[in-house]
């Protein structure tokens, strides 16, 4: 990657758990480590996908990058500056340049505001456009996301989910951002509506050279539109690399299991490889050594005690696994014969 716009460096976030006054006085507070030593970069015009199951910490990472949460340690640098040490002016610029789109457009839009007012709100804060200019800009933005400019006078309840999600995107685009954090932006939408939103996101990225941090659990969508993928498990990145290569040749058993668990929309193909067994352990009391070892079929004694670091394993790939060679040597993709499928069933 040539030109990182966002650098996340050694990010850790702990949340204090509710505990009684007495135990707090005695200094026995319990904490939950939601994100542990996470580092990644996003280049200009690039899409990095953060994937993982619920509780993996991917949204917490997104929330730290948007400054909703303060990190416990580590830094987030945007165009080289630490976002938690910005001057007032720097902060205002950051908030203009980095915008977010959430999963549920019903809860991220104010039901009492007309669509036009919602889209114009960031313009009021970040620009000194006149009211008439703002109206014009709103109409342009609605056209950008393929909605009729008349929608400016409607209320959220008059729109469908896909239309509302386009309004969220228009709002995010209103102040010409360079970076979008997209937290499950199409998860609540039907496939035919999802296709439109994905097309729109890809088109906007091409036209404006936008960078995306794309948080999703849907690996089909991730495969389609991301350049690189970071796979999270129990708050850590366990594997990171280029999308096509990572889907073809995973080097971490969790990635292998995750990919093998996704139902393929093709009855003739099923990925080989061990599907995930069991469930994610509690992050309050994570397993020793490699956090994935209790569910891992490759696990050896070493894995129970020794936490593997995330390190470069081959060209363009980082993985945190003692047995990455064995995992990545496995032939994962291909058509399954009828016999193999019968056996798999």
């Amino acid at each position: 990657m040539t030109d990182p716009i966002l650098e996340v460096d050694g990010l850790t976030k702990q949340f204090a758990l509710n505990s009684s006054v007495l135990s707090r006085l005695l200094g026995n507070t319990r904490t939950l480590t939601a994100v542990r030593d996470v580092s990644f970069e996003v280049g200009r015009g690039e899409t990095l996908a953060l994937v993982g199951e619920s509780g993996a910490g991917k949204s917490t990472v997104g929330n730290i990058v948007t400054r909703i949460h303060q990190p416990t340690s580590g830094a987030v640098r945007y165009r080289g500056d630490d976002i938690h040490e910005l001057s007032n002016e720097g902060l205002r610029e950051y908030r203009q340049s980095v915008q977010m789109v959430f999963q549920d457009p019903y809860s991220s839009l104010d039901p009492r505001y007309r669509i036009g007012a919602t889209i114009a709100e960031p313009l009021k804060i970040h620009t000194d456009l006149s009211k008439a200019d703002r109206r014009e800009r709103v109409a342009e933005l609605l056209e950008t996301v393929n909605l009729d400019p008349d929608f400016a006078d409607r209320y959220p309840h008059e729109l469908s989910g896909g239309q509302l999600q386009r309004v969220s995107i228009a709002t995010a685009l209103s102040v010409d951002p360079e970076f979008l954090i997209l937290d499950e932006p199409v998860s609540a939408l039907d496939v035919s509506v999802q296709a439109r939103i994905l097309n729109l996101l890809m088109q906007l990225q091409r036209e404006r050279n936008l960078s995306y941090l794309f948080i999703s659990h849907d690996l089909g969508v991730v495969k389609h539109l991301s350049d690189r993928v970071a796979v999270m498990y129990l708050g850590e990145i366990v594997e990171q690399g280029e999308t096509a290569s990572l889907f073809e040749r995973p080097a971490h058993p969790y990635t292998e299991g995750l990919l093998a668990s996704v139902p393929q929309a093709n009855p003739h193909v099923r990925r080989r490889g061990q599907r995930l067994t069991g469930e994610i352990p509690s992050p309050i009391n994570p397993p020793s050594g490699c956090p994935f070892h209790p569910r891992c079929e490759y696990a050896t004694e070493e894995c129970e005690s020794d936490h593997p670091p995330l390190e470069s394993v081959f060209e363009g790939r980082e993985a945190a696994c003692h047995h990455w060679e064995e995992v990545s040597a496995f032939e994962h993709v291909g058509e399954m014969s009828a016999e193999e499928r019968r056996e798999a069933n």
């Binding site: 296709a195 439109r196 994905l198 089909g220 389609h224 539109l225 093709n266």
Partner: peptide, 20 residues
Amino acid sequence: EDLLRSIPETHEMKSELTVI
């Protein structure tokens, strides 16, 4: 047919998805 064509799995990566 249209429904199947709108899912990402039936497309090349990064290509435009077919929309109904």
